[in-house]
């Protein structure tokens, strides 16, 4: 374990510092993706014909390798964290848009009719009725997007030390110190588990209205998307 936490100085961060950078680079894109996905999903539900093409576009974006994004973006945003985060935000859409859209769509018709009949407008109904009821599905989507994002940040090492914990792997090769690679892998895994647990706790807090055992009345995102996201 000698030198396990002994981070080479050219990375310009301590171990804890790398964790901070890693979380920032992983979570900000998910947050941005969520902000983008919320109105997109609303539009997809309002105009049904929009849903298939939007899903198609997010899937194509997901299929673009991050390296290709870097090549394009580097002219605009340079060798910065932003260059890493933009593709990650776009990737998160492939999980978040269907998670929100399907979750919102699973709200029972009677509930929607009742809301409309009580004088809820479209936006108020979306924010106060549909989204809260879709919260479990949205959080399930966030869990996949977050885990995926945390693992993907490492590729930032390709554009000059923007990979946070991924940089440790580059350093492991450069200095022939395999323990640094083990550190990178283990720390990334722990971060993913901790963030996931935090999201599960958040769901508990947000949904006191859910039956504790069995969740037949709430929506889960489509199974294939969960597997698609997790496989990356």
């Amino acid at each position: 374990m000698n030198g396990f936490f002994d981070i080479p100085s050219d990375l310009q961060h301590s171990w804890a510092g790398l964790i901070g950078v890693h979380l920032r680079e992983a979570l900000l894109p998910v947050a941005a993706g969520l902000l983008l996905a919320l109105p997109l999903a609303l539009l997809c539900n309002r105009f049904r014909w929009l849903y298939p093409p939007v899903l198609g576009v997010t899937t194509v974006l997901y299929a673009v390798p991050s390296l290709a994004f870097f090549v394009v973006l580097i002219d605009w945003t340079g060798q910065t964290e932003l260059t890493v985060m933009i593709p990650l935000a776009l990737y998160s859409l492939v999980v978040l848009v269907p998670a929100i859209a399907d979750g919102v769509r699973s709200v029972p018709d009677e509930t929607l009719s009742a809301a409309t009949a009580m004088g809820f407008g479209t936006v108020r109904r979306y924010l106060q009725v549909q989204l809260p009821i879709a919260a479990p599905a949205v959080i399930a989507g966030l869990r996949v997007a977050t885990a995926s994002s945390i693992s993907l940040v490492s590729v930032g090492a390709l554009i000059g030390n923007q990979g946070a914990l991924g940089n440790l792997m580059a350093a492991a090769q450069k200095y022939d110190r395999p323990e640094l690679a083990a550190n990178a892998v283990l720390t990334t895994a722990v971060l993913a588990v901790v963030c996931d647990a935090a999201l599960v706790a958040l769901r508990r807090v947000l949904t006191p209205w859910m039956p504790r055992s069995g969740r037949k009345r709430t929506a889960a995102p489509r199974e294939e998307l969960l597997t698609k996201g997790a496989a990356r």
Partner: peptide, 17 residues
């Protein structure tokens, strides 16, 4: 208009949250 008319629907349509 709608807030001046109560509306009751099949299965109640309560806000489960």
């Amino acid at each position: 208009l709608r807030r001046g008319m109560g509306y009751v629907i099949q299965n109640a349509g309560l806000f489960q949250h």
